[in-house]
């Protein structure tokens, strides 16, 4: 499973939807994921990709981890995974 599919699977599980119902342009709001659901999704992402997501619930925009849409989250996770591989490589 690539990063995109894995992230979508995590978000779908949180939203109690089929992965096929999660669209790239959806926001978390569209999917009915609240602040607690977001924090849980980020935890699941960290566990799945063995990365550390810089996210502070007090100021989601300050962390540089874009959560504005499913596509943005996937791009941000891809960035973190690349960083990790660069460091690990």
């Amino acid at each position: 499973m690539n990063v995109q599919d894995k992230v979508i699977a995590i978000i779908a599980e949180q939203a109690v939807l089929q992965p096929s119902d999660v669209k790239l342009e959806h926001s978390l709001d569209d999917l009915g994921i609240d602040s607690l659901g977001l924090v849980e999704s980020i935890f699941a992402i960290e566990e799945a990709f063995d990365v550390s997501v810089p996210f502070n619930a007090n100021d989601p925009t300050a962390s540089g981890f874009d959560i504005s849409s499913v596509a943005a989250i996937i791009a941000a996770v891809e960035g973190l995974v690349r960083q990790k591989e660069a460091v690990g490589g």
Binding site: N56, A57, N58
Partner: peptide, 11 residues
């Protein structure tokens, strides 16, 4: 502290 870290509301 680890428990609180999980919530991501800590400075």
């Amino acid at each position: 502290i680890k428990a609180w870290e999980g919530l991501r509301v800590m400075s």
